[in-house]
Amino acid sequence: MNSDTDLSGPLRPSFESMKARITLGNAVTLFAVLVLAALALATPGFLSMPAIRSLVTTVSFTGCVAIGMTFITLSGNLMSFSLGASLSAATLVFVATLGAGIWPAILAALLFCAALNALQGWIVGYFRANPIIVTMASFAIITGVATSLTGGRGLYILTNVAAGLKGNLGPVPGPFAAFAICALIAQLILSRTALGRRIVLTGTNPRAMLAMGAEPWKAVVWAYALAGLFTGVAAVLMAARYGSGDLQHGIGMEYSAIAAVLVGGTAIEGGRGSFLRTFLGALFIAVLQSVLVLRGFSTEWQRFGMGAVVLLVILLQRK
């Protein structure tokens, strides 16, 4: 096993592997990236430093949620509709616990968000409930409870305690550095830990896991818990950036995250994908949004653009 990627052995027609390498999807993806890059460069104001800083900062928030979403998709459970709501709730938890200090508040937000999603993962995994329905119901429950507890008002950070989270890491905005580190950690979990391999194997064939005596539901719970954890990171970053915990923070977030996951090329049916792909997918989506904004498209047309991209990607994923 020196060259483990060598498929040129006499066994399989090289036709098969060629098909895998040069698919229509790959070609179109490359084309789309080039078109978007050209558009972005031709858009006045795109290449200015403030615009780029703002772009990479916003992409960090959706990006962290997209990383979380990738775990759920990989585990074979399509997507979660409640990550945005979890994020909102976690920003509230963060601000509410900030009195105890910055680190306890971060810990509380992360654990809260992880537990909230692990619970959904347990319902999906253990009872084999439909993930779409479970997460949609959770979205309603989380939003409902949070609204009634806060009366719909945001919580504001009145002290300077979270200011450190808004800083820069050299020339790189802090949130973007956090996003990049999250992507690396997630990729490490995926490809180098037994848990990561379990999540992928469960995503490709839960029945085979069960037949192996491997308790696929546990892998699903972990996938959701990790999804919550990385969404919690986004919550902390957002709360610090905007100085508030607010139910508005997460609105529509899961949608951008799903788009990023799919554009990145993670298979919607599970078991195939990576976080580097999601990282690039999130960048793609952010650049697209930014170009649409800078070119003066209204919010409605921005939404149209995003929806069209997601549809296109789903069509291209078909073999």
């Binding site: 992928v200 194997l201 490709t204 064939n205 029945r207 085979a208 069960l210 037949a211 078991g271």
Partner: peptide
Amino acid sequence: AEEGVFIDR
């Protein structure tokens, strides 16, 4: 295919 092996891996 259904529960013996992971055919996509």
